[in-house]
């Protein structure tokens, strides 16, 4: 069976198994490493590709992105000077714009997942989406956004007291 047809099941931290084409799964660095290790051990690759830091819902989105990216790759953004102010002007094809039209919390989860799974195109897309959400915002507004999505992002750098207590 070729990679295109072969399916692997990736399991999330909460035990949700998400089937994915092997070709698409190989786009994720973490999955690729796992598969390569299992190939060397000649074990069944369809078993237990478990990701400890990604939830089932997020994993489904990642797999959706990976499978679409195999069929219709996204333009690389990292080295493109961004002069535009809308996501649709920076990203193509259109499918990716719709894919990124999600709430901020989900964006953050996808960035974390993409970073953990080592999926550069998804990371590019989500970083750009987040950039768009905070663009032209004052520090206070940015903090307001972050504090709703992930309070630790807007928390003070480090509490000195906690340091002292930890040291004591």
């Amino acid at each position: 069976m070729s990679n295109e047809e072969q399916l692997v099941t990736i399991t999330s931290q909460d035990g949700v198994g998400v089937p994915c084409k092997k070709e698409a799964a190989l786009l994720a660095g973490v999955v690729k490493n796992m598969i390569e290790e299992e190939d060397e051990d000649e074990t069944n690759i369809t078993e237990d590709l478990k990701l400890l830091k990604v939830t089932g819902e997020t994993l489904k989105k990642v797999v959706e992105f990976l499978e679409h990216h195999v069929d219709e790759p996204m333009e690389t953004l990292s080295e493109t000077p961004l002069q535009m102010t809308k996501l649709g002007e920076c990203v193509g094809p259109e499918w990716y714009v719709k894919f990124a039209d999600i709430d901020r919390e989900e964006m953050f989860l996808l960035v974390k997942a993409a970073n953990y799974m080592d999926v550069p195109p998804l990371l590019d897309l989500m970083c750009l989406a987040i950039t768009m959400t905070i663009m032209d915002k004052s520090p206070e507004e940015v903090r307001g956004i972050f504090s709703k999505v992930n309070p630790s992002l807007a928390a003070p750098p480090q509490a000195a007291e906690a340091d002292v207590e930890a040291a004591a």
Binding site: V111, K112, C127, I130, L153, A159
Partner: peptide, 19 residues
Amino acid sequence: LRRNPSVLDEESRYVVSQK
């Protein structure tokens, strides 16, 4: 952000001071 997306992955490793 793209250079270091892990900043978004920050767990609550710091004690969040209420002060």
